[in-house]
Structure formats: C-alpha cells, structure tokens
Design a binder for these strands. Structure first.
Lengths: 130, 130, 130, 130
DNA sequence: GTGGTCTAGACCACC
DNA sequence: GTGGTCTAGACCACA
C-alpha cells in the first residue's frame, strides 16, 4: 500500500479498512488482522496500527475482544456510511462547489469530466458494481 | 481573519492573498502590505508572514524590490489559476468522484445538490459574476 | 564546518549536503542526519536545519518519511547536477567570460592558469577521478 | 539600467561606473553625474547613489570636491584593474575551476563554449576591441 | 522604512 | 524518537 504524505498514515489505514468493510470484504463480526500482522504486511510501525484501530473502535466501527483480536461491529457499514456522508455534505461538497466557482468550472464541464473519468478509468470505480 | 486549525497559518495567508489577486483586489504591480504591517493586522508573528511571502515569491506570484516591498507579479493570476487548476484536476476531482462512488451519489443527485446550493447561498459565489 | 559570512547558513548547509550526494557519501534512500542531530553537530539552531531541509525537499533532492526522517531521493544526483549546470550556463559562465574580456585575459592565458592550478593543487579536484 | 536582485544595487551601480571608466567613457578628472542626477536617471533612491560614490571614493577611484561634485581619480583605471584582477585571481578563478571540476567540464569543453559565446554574442564583448 | 536571517524555546501530530 | 509550525526578539544590509 502506498501512502500519501499529506494525510496521517494511521488515518489512511483506518480509511482503507472502512473501504474494505463497505466493499464487504470484511463482514460483520469478522476478525480483522492483528496489529502485528497488519504492521508487517503494510511495513509500518505497529504503534501506527494501534492508533488506526483505536480510532475505528472509538467510532464504534470495530470492537475488541481481549486476548483475541478486533472484530467488525455489526452496524459497521451504517456507521461508516453515516460518517462519510456527514463529512461529505457538511464540508467536502461545499468546498468542492466553491472551488468549481473559483475555477469557473460549470456543471456541464463537470459532467464531461465525470464521463471522461468513468470511461478511461473503470478500475477505480469497479467496486460500485459489486 | 479566522484561521483553521488543520492547515498551517502561513499557507492560509498565502492562499488568502491568492484569492485577493484572483478577485482583482490586488492588481499586478500593486504593492502588497509590508511584512510588519500584515503581521500586526492579522495578529501573527512577522516570521509567519515572511514565510507566506517567501512561498508566494517562490511560486512567482509576487516579487520583491529590496528595501521597498513585495509586489504582485504581472502574470500572478495565470500562475494562481494554473496552480489551483493542476491541484484540482490531479487530486481533488478524482478524490471527489471516488467519494461520490463510495456514497453512491449519482451525477443526477449531484446536479440537484448543486442547484440547491446555488439558490440558497448566492453570496458565496457572488464574485463569479464580477 | 566553517560558514562564510556572505551567504545564508541554511543555503551553505544545503549546498554542502548536495556536495556529499554528488561525492556519493550519501547514496539514494540513505537517511540523512535528523534535524536535531545536525543542529547539534554543526552548532546551529534546529530551525536553520529545518530551512535547509525544506529547501532541499522543495527541489526534490530529499524526501521525508513522517516520524522517521529525511532520505536522499533516488534521482537526487541528477537534480543536483541539473540545478548546478543550469546556474553555471545561464549565469556563472557568461559572467566569467565577461570578466575575462574586461581583464583582457585570453583563452591561452586561461589555459595556462588552469594547468598551473591543477599541478599545485591536486587535492581539490581529487574526487574528479573517483 | 536593469538590476540583478542577487547583488546590492549600490554595488551594481559602482561596478557600472568602473566599467565606464575602463571603457574611457569617463576619463580622469572628469566630473561624474551628481548624486541627484544619477538617482533620477537610474530611478533609484538618492541614498543608494550616495553609497555607491562613498564606496568608490573609499577605494580611491573617485574623489570629491566639496560643493562641486565627484571626479574620476587620475589613476582610477589602474586601481579598478588591480581590484578586479586581485578578486579574480584570488577568488573567482579558483571557484570557477572548482565548479568546472564538479560539473565535469573539461578545458576543451570550455574552449568550445568560449568560441560559441563569442560568435553569437559579439555585442557583449564589443568594448574589448575599443 | 524594507525584507532576510538566525537564535531560543515552545507545542503539536505522528511513527 | 521524528519533523512542522509558531512566537518572540534580535541583528543585519539595503533603499
């Protein structure tokens, strides 16, 4: 996994796990990889994983069974969707529209860009169809 | 001026100056406030302004006449637009589309949101018409 | 390390690191000293090192892994060479030729001076043969 | 006159006057422009000219007759030549050779560059023939 | 007056 | 431990 350096790694990892949950690669009550396993496979410091999991647990997306591991909460998908939707509507969308205005990009331009993106780059949105 | 916590103050100041340039409140070859003046008026340390100005100068948006002050470069608007456009096309737009897919927001939904925003919140985009 | 008075310390440090890279004392992906370490060993303020490193990172010569340190970029040598070559061809060389003309130094004179220098002072250019 | 921003303007002006002396456009005991005249014609602050003249006077290149103006010293040419030659031999030449080594530019390369420069850009060295 | 640089020391997020 | 940012205050060259 490649990390962007403008966002905290632990948040990128947490986000990635959310994605896997949304794509149903991790189902409810599934055990997710241990801190050590994931640290090894992602080549990051175990503390970083600890932080990711703590973040996800605090949001109620995963829960911990002591001595056993972390598991996907039963309403994980709903929580993740709600979190993302809230952030999108309250922050990302207005910022995006503001930026469009600044760059004088019309809704029509956006529509074209959208179609262009979804023709050439089918892989990125493949999980939409799953 | 209010500063957000999640972005460096010197970048927020630089960005704000870019906005003023785009809105033509600062024209080319206009002298912008001196480091000390702006530091006082924004209630930040002069060094923070120095950093903002160094950043803008490095991008070619402003230039320095020694002992006199900083001035808006003649092609400042083009540079600012290019910088923002590049960032938008390479990063913000793909991320936005990805998020749309994740949240199952269609282009049609987006269109509705767009129109809703631009009815209720005309002030925010008023400078578009200038 | 001794610093000249007529050039900013942070630039002298940056330049010195470039030299070390060119001489392959720092190879690609090598971790360079931490800000604090180098500040102690060069007896300068850590902020000064921060500036040197920010400068080098901005040029793409080094990159940062958060919480770990700075590393030499994989094409650092090319970038350093390009930067120095550009400056040489566009500025230093013309100035030098102009000065030669002014002092009425011919190409033949220069050749003699060159040979004289490279006999008596072999140490300075020893890394040329490496 | 265009000023480079990497060198103090007063030094650039002083240097320019030295050039004029070397080209014999200012002969010995000629009165050079008054501080005010030159400040107006170069569009700089009069204080800057004062500094240039002070610098030249301190070097013995010009002298002042109170209430009348500044005049070119009788051995101005010798002094200018000596100053420039000293600086060239002790500092610029070694630095230049060092840079050549660093950039792996041979004497042969230099020769070619020299000829190329002196074919295409005859104006710059025109005063050599005067 | 202008900006450029440096020091000293602090706080923060992150690994 | 790492770097990133900010403040406070100082000194300097320059216009």
């Amino acid at each position: 996994m490649q990390f962007k350096d403008n966002e905290a790694i632990y948040l990128q990892i947490a986000d990635h796990i959310c994605d896997l949950i949304l794509r149903k690669e991790f189902s409810k009550d599934t055990r997710i990889p241990s801190v050590r396993e994931l640290a090894v496979s992602l080549v990051v410091n175990p503390n970083t994983i600890v932080r990711s999991y703590a973040y996800l647990e605090e949001k109620g997306i995963i829960y911990n069974q002591r001595g056993i591991g972390y598991f996907v909460a039963k309403d994980a998908i709903d929580i993740v969707m709600k979190l993302k939707m809230d952030q999108f509507m309250s922050s990302e969308l207005p910022q995006f529209f503001k930026k469009m205005a600044l760059l004088k990009i019309s809704l029509k331009d956006l529509k074209e860009l959208y179609h262009k993106t979804h023709q050439t780059n089918g892989k990125e949105i493949s999980y939409e169809a799953q």
